[in-house]
Design a protein around this nucleic acid. Sequence first.
DNA 1: TAGCATGATTAGGG
DNA 2: CCCTAATCATGCTA
Length: 440
Amino acid sequence: MDDQARIMQSIGGVSLAGHSVQGGMTLPPPHGHDGTDGDGRKQDIGDILHQIMTITDQSLDEAQAKKHGLNCHRMKPALFSVLCEIKEKTGLSIRGAQEEDPPDPQLMRLDNMLLAEGVAGPEKGGGSAAAAAAAVASGGTADNSIEHSDYRAKLTQIRQIYHTELEKYEQACNEFTTHVMNLLREQSRTRPISPKEIERMVGIIHRKFSSIQMQLKQSTCEAVMILRSRFLDARRKRRNFSKQATEILNEYFYSHLSNPYPSEEAKEELAKKCSITVSQVGNVHLTVSNWFGNKRIRYKKNIGKFQEEANLYAAKTAVNAAQAAAVAAQNSQANSPTTPNSGSSGSYNLPNSGDMFLSMQSLNGDSYQGAQVGANVQSQVDTMRHVISQTAGYNDALGGNAMYSPHSLNGNGGWQDATTPSSVILPTEGPESVHSDTSN
DNA sequence: TAGCATGATTAGGG
DNA sequence: CCCTAATCATGCTA
């Protein structure tokens, strides 16, 4: 019996203790611990150890020859399968523990975030999903608050980088896995490596690579967050309106001082007239609302400070209205001399602007409250009369210091009828013809 | 550069 | 959902 055969036999004898025979091969019965065969086994093990210790002393050819001899030994397949079985059994507990790993919550969080931001997930819906998400976050509407080309461009860039890197990682992972698998398959001819063990190794490799992937996802998330915060900061950045725009808004405000709550249509119209566009701010409607909200509150807080401004705009409105009225009167005289006067107490026609216009329109549209109309009309008429009298050198009993008294504010600090649902329609024809400088 | 002006945001109420 | 009130943050100007 040569050395190799003895090794095989010895290993077989040790390894198969307590196991039945595979492949119909009869193996020595399990050794007891009574020491009857102990000396023989010790001798065998000693031989093996000796061979292992001296293996480096052997030449390569000698080692190859021994290896070949081992591979060709008739007992090798049986021994091999038994070793595989034992290995599998000892590996079970480890593998079981590792495979029970729940999905990493942090990874899930990152995945969800990337999906929500439109970086991961389907190519097409991604951008709009992100836009919608960001719009919701910023309180605006999806269609205009984040239609920011810069934002989208940067997001697309991030998305591209992310996918490129992800692809690289996946490729590297696959390549490495294939390499390791090939290596293990190659080695499995000389040492017991079961397919399951290869699988396990692949799992380990994948886990390692997924931790790298997580880093990628993490930095991508960070990039998106920075982008978003920058974008939102930019949105917050204030840009003063043009002087014209402020004038238009002020004119509307002071000519509707009794009820400075523009309707949706009025807001849109104002935005249009003020050339407040989507590109200028995120949300046109919100901007006009902001302006009126700020104006109302600041006016109310310090009426004295705004008195001068109020007078200015009152005069402006009145003069414009008077001009328009004069033109209208001329036209009406020329076109239909029999047109009755609209019933005002003065000698001029009612101006076709501001609350007066509203009252007329609203009466036609039957949606406006009578009381409100009355208040507005009265306020406007008073102002008009006063201003026109001043500009025309006419004195009346009102005195000259307060063209706009804060009578629109009630005792509670609120505007009269402030709770009345506003159905105010911005004059679409009158002011345009009057304020030719503000029309688009 | 301080201080005011002003557009935007936020919290809370109806 | 719109409003007010308070506040933030930036723009403008003396």
